[in-house]
Simulated assay, not measured.
Amino acid sequence: MVLPIVAYGDPVLRKETETITKDFPRLDELIENMFETMYDARGIGLAAPQIGEPIRLFVVDATPFEDDDDLSEAEQKFVADFKRVFINPRMLEETGDEWAFNEGCLSIPEVREDVFRQRNIVLEYEDENFKKHKESFNGIVARIIQHEYDHIEGILFTDKLSPLKKRLIKGKLANISKGNISVDYRMKFPNAKKKR
Rank of each mutant, 00 (worst) to 15 (best):
E66P: 01
D150E: 09
N102K: 14
F35N: 00
K195C: 04
R167C: 04
A174Y: 04
K134Q: 14
H147S: 08
T158Y: 01
Y185S: 03
F137D: 04
R196M: 02
A142Q: 09
E53Y: 07
N120F: 04
D184N: 14
G179S: 07
E98A: 13
F130E: 04
R186P: 00
L164P: 07
S136H: 10
C105V: 03
Q146D: 06
C105L: 07
E53H: 13
V115G: 13
F189S: 03
W99K: 15
R196S: 11
H133C: 07
N88F: 01
L161S: 12
K132G: 08
E148C: 09
G9W: 01
L156H: 08
K132N: 13
N175V: 00
E36V: 06
F101Q: 10
G179K: 04
A47E: 02
L106C: 11
N129D: 10
I144F: 07
G171H: 08
A174E: 11
G171F: 04
P4T: 03
E113W: 03
V85T: 14
D127R: 12
K166P: 04
L161A: 11
V12M: 05
L92M: 14
E135P: 01
L161W: 06
N138R: 13
H151R: 13
G43M: 05
L13V: 05
K15Y: 00
D61V: 09
F101W: 05
L168F: 13
Y149I: 10
D127G: 11
L30T: 09
T158R: 05
L46Q: 07
S162C: 10
L13N: 05
R186A: 10
F189A: 02
N191Q: 00
F65K: 06
L168M: 15
V115C: 13
F189I: 03
F157S: 14
T37R: 07
M1G: 15
I144T: 08
R26A: 13
D127N: 15
I145Y: 10
T17Y: 02
K178V: 00
F78I: 13
E126S: 08
N88M: 05
N129F: 03
E53Q: 15
P109S: 12
A7D: 03
I44A: 12
K170V: 02
F58N: 08
T21L: 10
N102G: 09
G179H: 03
L156P: 02
L156Q: 09
I169W: 00
Q146R: 09
E32C: 04
F86M: 11
V12I: 08
G45Y: 03
Q76W: 08
D10R: 00
R117M: 11
H133T: 07
A41W: 01
A47P: 08
F86P: 06
P190Y: 00
R90G: 06
G43P: 06
S177G: 07
I55W: 05
K188Y: 04
E32M: 02
K193L: 01
E75K: 15
L168S: 09
R112D: 02
D69M: 11
T63R: 15
N175C: 02
I169V: 02
F24N: 08
Y39Q: 04
R42A: 13
D23M: 07
E93H: 12
K193D: 01
E126W: 00
F65G: 09
R26V: 05
E75R: 14
S72K: 06
F58K: 14
T19Y: 13
M1S: 15
P49E: 06
F78H: 14
I176M: 09
I87H: 06
E103T: 06
L27I: 08
P11S: 09
F157M: 14
N102H: 08
